Amino acid sequence: MYSNKFSRLMFGQFNLKPTSVCTAVWTAAGRRGFSWTAVCKQRTLWMRRGACLQMERRDELRHTGARSVSQSTVDPAELRRFQLLANKWWDEQGDFAALHAMNDLRVPFVRDNLLNVHRAHHLGKPLAGLRIMDVGCGGGLLTEPLGRLGANVLGIDPVEDSINIAQLHSSHDPDLTDSVSYRACTLEELSGVEEGEQGRGMFDAIVASEVVEHLADLETFAFCCNSVLKPGGSLFITTINKTNLSYALAIVVAEQLLRIVPRGTHDWEKFITPEELERLLESNGFSVQSVQGMMYNPMSGAWSWTNSTAINYALHAVKQSDEASDSIFHPEDHATATHN
């Protein structure tokens, strides 16, 4: 069963007292043979393997002079996985139930931070006049509520079936006709890395919620986000931290024990700490404004804000002025940049 050490770690970090609900989670996991020691050992082995692969890759780059970025954010394995789930986006009790519930936090997080930046208030439509891109929009779970707040929202996703589902669902709401649109494409295609200059400097904000942990190249992602945003534009990210606790809860408990999400949904090697993400964004012309911890209760199905970022977190960053960005990076520099 879960050890007392794990319980102290879990509740101590969040300043919470064990409730009957959470105790039920630990008990259920314990009955299936969960071992915190085994989790730590497995995670340590993964870290060592990742470090060895990273060192081998760096040695290869030094000797060959090869480019370190793929110029594509899309991981083919992730593409295939979400292709199989495309028809489940709007099942609020299904595989994406946690994402539906997350709207209670992420929609106000985006709205309130944008209002702080733009200082404009439109009765009933607080985000009117703003253009937002929802990267990795899936079936439009976040795209639609942002559109209802008055923003002009473009949802993009490389899975065409997901885009078809999103378009079909939004078509049933006449209020979204003029505010929400979708396109089956990648961020780099829209930003101009692959196709001209079509998306450069067009958006007031980008939202990438539960996306970066599925991408193939975060350097390309950050570079393209800067490209499509206006100076002073906002970037909103929600993702999973790379800690022992996140491995235990997001993969062992959520996928393998409680099966809240399909097995194989997450790859711990792709998780990123807030510190690493902040360094990446700052090297690509952003200034991080805030980082806030999030926690999901699988028994109640509800999300809440927390002082700890040990598991999930939300980040808000702002694109610096063109002059400041030019002094930080250039497209040709991006080709040889390495994210450590």
Rank of each mutant, 00 (worst) to 15 (best):
S181R: 15
G201Q: 09
L215I: 15
F271E: 06
G232L: 05
A248K: 01
N244M: 04
D157I: 08
G232I: 07
E197I: 12
S170A: 15
S171N: 04
Q256S: 06
Y182I: 11
D204S: 15
E269G: 09
V211C: 12
P231H: 03
T238D: 06
I165E: 04
A222I: 05
E197K: 13
C225E: 03
V207E: 04
Q167T: 14
D204M: 12
A254I: 04
C225D: 04
I237H: 07
W268I: 04
P174G: 12
S181H: 15
F203Q: 07
I237G: 06
T243I: 10
E219G: 11
P158Y: 11
V252W: 00
A248D: 01
L249S: 00
V261F: 02
C185M: 15
D175F: 13
T243E: 08
V253C: 00
L218W: 03
H266E: 04
R183F: 06
K230A: 07
Y182H: 14
I260Q: 04
A248I: 01
T238P: 05
Q256L: 03
D217K: 12
V193C: 09
L257C: 03
H169Y: 10
E197R: 14
R263P: 00
T239R: 05
L218D: 04
I163Q: 00
E210V: 14
D173Y: 13
V159C: 05
I163G: 01
T243W: 08
V253G: 00
W268N: 01
H214W: 13
K242T: 11
D175N: 15
I237V: 15
E269K: 12
